[in-house]
Design a protein around this nucleic acid. Sequence first.
DNA 1: ATAATGAATATTGTATTCAAAATTCAAGTC
DNA 2: GACTTGAATTTTGAATACAATATTCATTAT
Lengths: 219, 219
Amino acid sequence: MPMSAAIPRRTLHDELVDRLRHMIIEGDLAPGEKLSEKDLCGHFDVSRTPLREALKILAKDGLVRLIPNRGATVAKLTLADLEEAFPVMGALEAVSGELACLHITDAEIMRIAKLHDEMVDNFRAGELGAYFQRNERIHQLILDAARNPTLSEMQRGLSGRIRRARYMANMSAERWAEAVAEHEAILDALKARDGARLGKLLKAHLANKLQTVRDALVE
Amino acid sequence: MPMSAAIPRRTLHDELVDRLRHMIIEGDLAPGEKLSEKDLCGHFDVSRTPLREALKILAKDGLVRLIPNRGATVAKLTLADLEEAFPVMGALEAVSGELACLHITDAEIMRIAKLHDEMVDNFRAGELGAYFQRNERIHQLILDAARNPTLSEMQRGLSGRIRRARYMANMSAERWAEAVAEHEAILDALKARDGARLGKLLKAHLANKLQTVRDALVE
DNA sequence: ATAATGAATATTGTATTCAAAATTCAAGTC
DNA sequence: GACTTGAATTTTGAATACAATATTCATTAT
């Protein structure tokens, strides 16, 4: 019996963490919104115990703000948060680029190249939603190629905080074209397995992305 | 009424997180050790609710390993963990050095210089414990000078995982002398506010430290 | 003797209850 | 009318109770 057939079981709080995180990142729960334990328990039909455990985890992730005896709110994304996250994310992006080049397989590069082409098609067709999805998928695959769960987890946590601003960042046409061009360069570096170059490109790409978010944030 | 006189109140789970983290890092709880909820509740005289919340936080920090329906154990520090944490910590060290040079005040530099001198005295007197304490304090102050809570929090989390190995890492006399020399260079870069240089020095210093831990880990 | 089975026990996951603090809001004061 | 004051209500923090799962261990069969 070679194949593992273990039945994946999840606890309620784990499930709640995922669902709440998703709701926050997708904007179903607005920044600053009060998170009433009672309401959320009603919504998910669970008791307060697992819900509260989930809220604490999300607070540690920076998505929720917990104030003792006053409950939870969805964390706001301020300009200061962005400025703070930026140097950290930049450093992590650079590392992930370097590590990815060390470990990535040809098959993985092909997969990314395919996604990239599809993403460019999305760009040409002006399909922003599909573009975003493939874009994110590409970045995720590069991160996976770094073969470093600790790094992935940190990136995931940080980008989760910022991804919330994604939909508000109404990318200009020029910025969008630039982003696509940056992705071309990223793919080239990846194919060449040039870690240092890829790291720098990813960092620069991030800087531009954050600038877009920043612009949107100051309205 | 300018002075804030708010009475700091803590919740039990926050307190528990701190105490358990301390116990794990200081080795009071051994790696791999089973963490019985019942026993811990008895030890701290609290109910399971806040204790379980604390365990989940620590699991997210990587200090505790939670398996559904099977309870918690103190996370083991493996060679793989170390190799994984290294590039991430290196990148963060470099950033913290750069940011610290941008923001640090003269008073802060003087404070660090003073601690440094005391630490060198500890080294000369062979006082390992006092040396470690001042050493850690210095690194903490540099991190504080970076004025970036996100960065601090991440560094704290990662170094917490590794600091557990501190007592097992029986630093050789040569390595100790090297570390002191590295600290001299670090202080110089800080005084010169040369961020790039400080970043590189901190990263190299970390690499050496991790090498010591690695040596101890493979016995 | 060893391995397998299943009842007894212990431990974990979740719900509920109780206690403490914050919020709301109506009544009273300046 | 705006600002306190304090009781009623709501909400949160922690403890307990209950349910589900895992572990232990004696029993049985091979």
